[in-house]
Amino acid sequence: MIKFFRKIRQSLLSEGKTGKYLKYAVGEIILVVIGILIALSINNWNQERIKTKQTVDLLNNMISDLKADITGLNRDIRRYEKSISNGKLILNTENFDSFSADSLYFLLPTKVVTYRVTTQAFEKIKNLGISKILDSNNLFNAISSYYTSNLFYLENVIKWEYDSNIKSFEFWALDNQFESAVFAGVEFIPYSDEEAVRKNALIKLVSSIESRNHIRQAISKKNRIVKTLKSTKTDAETLISLIEDELNNNNKSTTSYN
């Protein structure tokens, strides 16, 4: 092709057709420029395609992470609500005859969770530069909010309840009058007191004003945790919806372009 153009130029020059030669030269330059622009356009299209696929893959991974979060949040909400219900049962029960010592003890609202939001997809997006791969400001803000401020608040509320619950647990587990059954590895070691003695000691313990205040405080804090867990779950569901909308819009744009 280059030899062909060269022959045309040489022929025009040898024939003394300077005007036609200049027109031809200009035309050739224009063709070269058009070729460069087409090459750049193809390259940009290819880069955009790669970026779009990368974004789609990461957003789909984030949806998987968020669904895992929702599963974990639902599990912990149920656990806390059960613990709250058990605490209320102790406070509202006047006759504990139907309970064994251990079954009554395990109703105490001492359970805690140390839930951690799944952040694998977010970390990958953050490392790539979240603002560079997301075109939607609403989605960018929602992702940033969920994995930064919301996550920070959730972790601190859980830690606050966990630290407080450790003190409450020690109050119940290390009482001088009741031999606890909760320590790992000692389940089959017999108690020093008979069942009736242990049960009466525990009933006396849970009926005291100090114990009832411990239970009330635990219920109050667990209600706070449940509220936070439910709020986080709602945020996760909203974020999934926003991501799915973004993926649908991207799919429509890609289809239209093709």
Rank of each mutant, 00 (worst) to 15 (best):
M1Q: 12
M1A: 12
F4R: 12
R6P: 14
R6L: 15
Q10V: 11
L12R: 00
L13H: 09
K17C: 05
T18S: 13
T18I: 14
K20G: 04
Y24M: 09
A25N: 14
G27W: 09
I29H: 11
V33L: 06
G35H: 02
G35F: 01
I38M: 06
W45H: 14
E48C: 04
E48D: 12
K51C: 07
K51D: 10
T52C: 08
K53G: 05
T55C: 07
T55F: 05
T55Q: 09
D57A: 12
L58Q: 01
L59S: 05
N61R: 11
M62R: 02
M62A: 07
M62H: 03
I63Q: 06
K67H: 15
T71F: 03
G72K: 00
D76E: 15
I77R: 00
S85G: 08
G87C: 07
K88S: 03
L89A: 11
I90E: 01
L91K: 13
L91P: 10
E94P: 03
F96G: 05
D97W: 08
S98F: 12
F99G: 02
F99R: 03
D102W: 15
D102E: 14
F106R: 12
L108H: 07
P109L: 08
P109S: 10
P109T: 10
T110K: 04
T110N: 05
K111D: 11
V112C: 13
T114N: 11
Y115H: 06
Y115C: 05
V117H: 08
T119S: 11
T119A: 06
T119N: 10
L128A: 01
G129T: 02
I130P: 07
S131E: 09
D135G: 01
D135N: 00
S136P: 00
S136Q: 03
N137S: 04
N137D: 03
N138C: 10
N141I: 14
N141F: 15
A142C: 06
A142D: 08
S144G: 06
S145A: 13
Y147I: 00
Y147A: 00
S149L: 10
F152V: 03
F152A: 07
F152G: 01
Y153K: 06
L154G: 03
W160G: 15
E161N: 05
D163L: 08
S164L: 13
F169W: 13
F169I: 15
L174R: 04
N176C: 05
F178I: 05
F178G: 04
E179D: 10
S180K: 01
F183W: 01
V186N: 09
F188H: 10
P190T: 04
Y191E: 12
Y191L: 13
E195I: 10
E195A: 09
A196N: 12
V197Y: 05
R198T: 06
L202D: 05
L202H: 08
I209R: 06
N213R: 05
H214S: 12
I215H: 03
R216S: 11
I219W: 02
V226K: 01
V226L: 04
V226T: 06
K227E: 14
T228M: 03
T228Y: 01
L229H: 07
K230C: 02
T234L: 13
D235S: 15
A236Y: 06
E237R: 14
T238C: 09
L239S: 01
I240R: 00
I240K: 00
S241A: 03
D245R: 11
D245T: 13
L247D: 04
N248M: 09
N248W: 03
N248P: 03
N249S: 09
N251G: 15
S253D: 15
T254Y: 12
Y257L: 02
